[in-house]
Design a binder for these strands. Structure first.
Lengths: 349, 349
DNA sequence: CTGAAAGCGCTTACAG
DNA sequence: CTGAAAGCGCTTACAG
């Protein structure tokens, strides 16, 4: 690893070729593990590569070969553990494929998302995985990334999506099925007055989860009261603040399907402040199965979205697309799994 | 944005130059906002760039200019919210500087870290931010990245670090000061028998926090019992399991400084299982100020490391280094801030 | 203010 | 099996 080369200049194939008395082409063939090159020549070149501390310049190779060795990953909110896990899963698979992840974060702003996509696309990623900011628009995204680079949309739909974007793959969670199962579970535990708590009607995931909730309630013919659908920001703090809205009118619900775990944990907090013991006096379910769902008191029945596995899956889908650009678009809706932890929703007394 | 170009070929400066009847050099000058070019010519070229949907090829430009427009970020555990926040902070600043983040995750494995560094370095990042895997070795890292690319070490020390790595910048948290303040706070609340709970002696952050704890105890002359220093994995689950170790011998502590918030939350769980009400029967402090510290019951007094701010700071330090490669290395130890939430450590009755 | 030429570090046919 | 030549898409002196 020691280098005789002055720090000012990078070692290139030319240096190696000169030192070995071969052509640059030969060095290139060695680098690319070509079987064409003589065993002894290869050994000599490899020794010299090591000796001079040669570092392959993949950008130059990509330019010449017109290939890419990167995948762009644009996340709406990287600080959110769900998306952080997702990103980790993507990066696992991208790394295994010998490629590198170009990271971008939009902070839930479609404007930032535009800027980030514009910047990343100039680096020539082979494909893009986009977890859209809320309100992100399909036309804007197309304008930013062009039609040449395969794109996979994760988790949310883009607004205004038209048939001309049908070539984009997508991977989403089956929000509706999940919320349906959670609601059915609470019903099976004996609840009739069940609320849907948290989230925002603007978001497609919230709309889908609500639809699943309503579907399950309708399936058994239970009525729903308007004040049982409470909107709040998808944060603990706001959920805690909004808890009382559930009890403002009669009849009050005895259970709630929550938009996600953060909201459910916040609701627990809000219930406790009203003197209600979550789990005992009021049953609830979450969505996501974040780490603390299992460790909260009471532990939380929730829907596992397996974000790391989804990240791996998204990356695999995109790599598949790079191999076969003309295959029909795949729109996968991954099922979520109900994780029953009795303490947050025991049988109704 | 509509493109007349067949999908098979990318639009290049050559296409734009031909369409406008100017040379490629002129197009290049327009792209780089040079004041040299005539106003009308510029307008014509810009219109044509838009018309053909030109996308700048930054890799080609970087090759020619021998510059870089990326920063590599290698994280030991991206799924950990602390590091996810850190990564988000890094990416904010990198993006603001018009650069792009190359992401890598080592999953706490020095071997994976080596592989990831080796892969990222081939993409020619301008600099590297490394949050080392536990046990990562300075010589190995140097072998993987070479001496040419500036590196900033975050959060942990590399093992076997020698004077020859003194050119690496570093940003760490003042673990010792933080633990000292937490311990002093518990002492001020009236505790004398204070434990240090959780973490692993292999990790430098754990050793530093323990040192701060001991220092504070010694400063007031309080004795420490060996069974008050309990090791466990830095996870809730293991912390809950290890809680009883605190009570195996007499005298039992009345409070604990915990290695981090996850461990503190786990300890709360373990205390509750033993019939002790955390906060009332046993005081404790955390470290990190993760989101649920404020919302746990009882809410947790802890030390705020502000990971997002640290990410921004790390990126700024590295960008500064790129501007001034020969400046002396900076080794910054960022203070952490005690966030007092009385409910986890009220005055001792 | 604009153009012709050379070159960043690599790879790919094509000869030999 | 190896080498000479051309070229990926851009930028930079250097002329004019």
């Amino acid at each position: 690893m020691e280098s005789n080369t002055p720090l000012g200049r990078k070692v290139t194939v030319r240096d190696i070729a000169a030192a070995c008395g071969v052509s640059r082409a030969t060095v290139s063939l060695v680098l690319r593990d070509s079987p064409l090159v003589n065993k002894d020549t290869r050994a000599r070149v490899e020794e010299e590569l090591r000796r001079q501390g040669y570092v392959y310049n993949r950008a130059a190779a990509n330019l010449r070969r017109r290939t890419s060795s990167s995948i762009a990953l644009v996340i709406n909110e990287l600080a959110n553990p769900f998306f952080a896990e997702f990103a980790a899963g993507v990066d696992d698979v991208v790394g295994e494929a010998g490629m590198v992840t170009l990271l971008g974060s939009s902070s839930e702003s479609p404007q930032r998302e535009q800027a980030v996509l514009g910047s990343l696309i100039e680096h020539g990623p082979g494909g893009i995985i986009l977890s859209p900011a809320e309100g992100s628009d399909a036309r804007q995204v197309l304008a930013a990334v062009g039609a040449r680079t395969p794109l996979l949309v994760f988790n949310r739909e883009l607004s205004g999506e038209q048939p001309e974007y049908a070539h984009w793959d997508s991977l989403a969670l089956d929000n509706q099925q999940g919320a349906r199962e959670a609601t059915a579970h609470l019903i099976a535990q004996g609840h009739r007055r069940i609320a849907f708590f948290g989230g925002h009607g603007d978001s497609s995931s919230c709309r889908q989860r609500r639809a699943g909730y309503r579907e399950a309630m309708k399936a058994v013919g239970f009525p729903m009261a308007p004040h049982w659908e409470v909107e709040c920001l998808p944060t603990r703090l706001d959920a805690a603040r909004c808890a009382e809205a559930l009890f403002e009118a009669d009849p009050a619900p005895t259970a709630a399907v929550c938009y996600n775990d953060a909201v459910a944990l916040g609701l627990m907090h809000g219930l406790a402040e009203r003197g209600l013991a979550p789990g005992q006096d009021f049953a609830l379910t979450g969505f996501d199965d974040i780490a603390e769902a299992a460790l909260a008191t009471p532990s939380l029945t929730t829907l596992a979205a397996a974000p790391r596995a989804r990240g791996r899956q998204a990356a695999q889908m995109l790599l598949q697309r790079l191999r076969d650009p003309d295959a029909e678009a795949r729109r996968i809706v991954a099922p979520v799994k109900l994780v029953i932890r009795a303490s947050s929703c025991p049988p109704l007394a």
